[in-house]
Amino acid sequence: MPVPTVELRFTALPAHVRTARLVAVSLARRAGVADDLLDEVRLAVGEAATRAVSRHRTSCPAEPVLLRLTDTGDHFTAEVVDVARDPSPAAAPPALALATLAETAEQAHPDADLDESLPPGVDLAVIGGLVEDVQVAAGPGGCTVLMAWPTSAGR
């Protein structure tokens, strides 16, 4: 089991998501992730951290979110861990989430729902569309999103 390079624990506030992105990109660069993948790291870690913050704010706002960044040698991994106790069933499959998003965006009639919250699952669909190597482990006591990118040592 590789030792985490850096662990960042932050209060579940939107303002801290940017910090999570900055730290992740900085360490990914140091670990040797290719420059053209750094934007993916930035966006994917941002989406996962935003999702965790949102889940904590609903379920356990006092609990911090954990970002664990590890340089395994041939890979750089970012793990976003939330402890939100989520009684709802698993999020919609990515394809369904994106179809719902496009559908709601097309609603044009004056009494259209102006709710701007995205359909559930869009965050994970974006991560899945960006990152080839991603695992989502959801349980009653929280959810972990583990993403990995190759480093120069692993290519």
């Binding site: 935003t50 709601t104 044009a108 995205l118 869009v122």
Partner: peptide, 21 residues
């Protein structure tokens, strides 16, 4: 410099608002 799905949500919400008019 950076746009995530939350930003997309705001643009989608904006589109719905203007289309209502």
């Amino acid at each position: 410099e950076f746009l995530d799905s939350t930003g997309l949500g705001v643009l989608v919400g904006g589109l719905k608002r203007v289309r209502a008019h």
